[in-house]
């Protein structure tokens, strides 16, 4: 039964997932072209100096892309469920409500993670084409919190969309914005490297919070 929930959500999301993946690959392509341009316009040692010593980043378009991807997938997944309260169909299925909700979130998160993993691979591959392994490591350490921001954006959007009361919806929005913003505020490339496990735990801890609005939707009093 749980597998059926996963299959249903996969059916719903596959077209949106492909669209999201295409968008991300387009941005990766753009970053690659921009990177080649950097080396075409300047000597390689100048570009290396700027990236390694001055901390310039050539992959800025990746910064907000995971957030956009997370929001896009959450809206694609949960907005139709909220239209005419269609989510009631799923919540009436003979399965524990938390399994139903977590099944939905698992598929959505999985879809976002797969796209963001493609981003990470693309970024690692293109960085390693022009830079040494140390730069690849710093680049990935810089991009990983952005990818985690994509996950919090997905969870936050789900939290907002599933919440039936507008007051708590505003509260959820504020919490989600704050948490997502936290992942995007690195002072320098790789600044969050040492606290990456903590940030990962934060995302894991945020995940079950989606149960709260879903329960409020299921067992509401007004």
């Amino acid at each position: 039964m749980f597998r059926s929930i996963l299959l249903k959500e996969y059916t719903k999301l596959k077209a949106f997932w492909l669209a999201g993946l295409a968008l991300n690959l387009c941005v990766a392509g753009y970053v690659l072209v921009a990177l080649r341009k950097l080396f075409a316009l300047d000597h390689a040692e100048v570009v290396w100096y700027r990236v390694i010593h001055l901390g310039q980043t050539f992959y800025d378009p990746f910064m907000y892309l995971p957030v956009i991807t997370g929001l896009f997938m959450a809206v694609a997944q949960f907005l139709p469920e909220m239209k005419n309260h269609r989510f009631r169909i799923s919540l009436h299925l003979p399965l524990a409500p938390h399994l139903i909700v977590l099944g939905h979130v698992l598929v959505g998160l999985g879809a976002v993670v797969l796209i963001l993993a493609a981003d990470l691979l693309a970024l690692a591959a293109m960085t390693s084409l022009y830079f040494p392994a140390e730069v690849v490591a710093v680049t990935l350490a810089t991009a990983l919190p952005w990818l985690l921001a994509g996950l919090t954006a997905y969870l936050g959007a789900a939290l907002v969309l599933l919440e039936p009361g507008w007051r708590l919806r505003v509260f959820n929005l504020a919490v989600s914005l704050g948490l997502t913003g936290l992942f995007l505020h690195q002072g320098a490339p790789g600044a969050y490297q040492r606290i990456l496990p903590l940030l990962f735990i934060l995302v894991l801890a945020f995940t079950p919070s989606v149960l709260l609005p879903a329960y409020r939707f299921r067992y509401r009093k007004d």
Partner: peptide, 24 residues
């Protein structure tokens, strides 16, 4: 339950929605 407006999973087909509900 039949919800007002005949709510259904609109992204599913005649066959896939049957397979989905049959498993429950």
């Amino acid at each position: 339950l039949l919800f007002e407006g005949h709510l259904a999973y609109e992204f599913m087909s005649i066959e896939s929605v049957e397979r989905f509900f049959a498993s429950f």
